[in-house]
Design a protein around this nucleic acid. Structure first.
Length: 299
DNA sequence: ATCCAGGATAGCG
DNA sequence: CGCTATCATGGA
């Protein structure tokens, strides 16, 4: 009973109507929450007070880091560690990386990032909107789609929106989506949602396929090529060896591992990434984050 | 104003 | 094969 009075509580809305949210403290297992939610793998989490608000699938939540622990809403003690992949053996993963200077520096800078477990459709649709967009744009598009088409869910007095289901997007017309500033990506998002709703490809069934075959299937969706397919494989299908090659990681790899702007194509870079080992996707995320934060201006 | 962004793709040689 | 222009939109 003495514990109850020390249980942390929080009120997430300005108007302090309703009971405050009761929080639980759980071990963070070495995670850095801020890096994890802001390193460019997921886009909808929003800073609120000392933590972040957002949804894990249908579940609205609040996450806050306190020293090495996490504060989560009461009742979320199981779903949060799964979503944030706190079970990943980060020591094993980092020990599997090659020991070159670039990797060492990236580990030092990016330590604490977890490759989280995102809902498959949400991940696929979000990265469909990511083509030729800055991270801040992807984020605002995701939030607009949620607000306009998502389901309203409540956490205490706080209202959030889930990412709209494929059926909801499939029923939209192009102009609805264009209002979320999707531009030329709207066509692809709509057509992909319609393919899924028509059962042309079942996303869940790809889980049982070898990575190469799952990638091939993902690339059948309009607007999905190797890069976006690899994002979905890494961030939603738990394929830790999948490496998305984008402009940033391309620059990092060429400048670090190849000589002076020799033309090195994406396919050759992709081959090279086997060098990073069985957790190449993790290594890629470390490098991506380090490079993007460090060389943003200087190029 | 000009350039570029966690790309994909049709259309060329 | 590999290379290029093009696709909307907004921040720097």
């Amino acid at each position: 009973m003495a514990h109850r009075s020390t249980q942390p509580v929080i009120s997430l809305t300005c108007k302090s109507a309703g009971p405050a949210l009761r929080l639980c403290r759980i071990p963070g297992a070495g995670i850095d929450l801020e890096k994890t939610l802001e390193c460019g793998q997921v886009f909808h989490w929003t800073r609120r007070q000392a933590g972040f608000i957002g949804t894990m699938g249908e579940t609205p939540s609040y996450l806050e880091q306190v020293e090495s622990d996490l504060l989560v809403p009461e009742g979320h003690q199981t779903v949060v560690p799964r979503y944030l992949a706190l079970d990943h053996s980060i020591d094993v993963i980092e020990a599997s990386f090659p020991k070159d200077p670039a990797i060492r520096a990236a580990i030092r800078f990016s330590r604490g990032i977890r490759i989280i477990r995102q809902p498959i459709w949400e991940c696929l649709a979000t990265f469909l909107t990511s083509a030729m967009k800055q991270v801040s744009h992807i984020r605002s598009i995701s939030l607009m789609m949620r607000k306009r088409f998502g389901k309203k869910v409540r956490l205490g007095s706080l209202e959030l929106h889930t990412f709209p289901a494929p059926e909801v997007i499939a029923a939209c017309n192009l102009n609805d989506l264009l209002e979320c500033r999707l531009g030329f990506r709207a066509r692809n998002v709509l057509a992909t949602a319609q393919m899924i709703t028509a059962n042309k490809i079942q996303l869940k069934e790809l889980s049982s396929l070898p990575t190469a075959e799952a990638r091939e299937m993902l690339c059948r969706f309009p607007g999905v090529g190797d890069k976006i397919a690899n994002c979905v494989l890494l961030f939603a299908y738990e394929r830790m060896d999948a490496v998305p090659i984008d402009v940033w990681i391309g620059r990092a790899l060429r400048q670090t591992y190849f000589s002076e702007d020799q033309p090195v194509g994406a396919s050759r870079l992709s081959e090279f990434c086997r060098y990073f080992g069985p957790y190449a996707g993790y290594a890629q995320q470390y490098l991506f984050h380090h490079w993007r934060m460090t060389y943003r201006k200087t190029r």
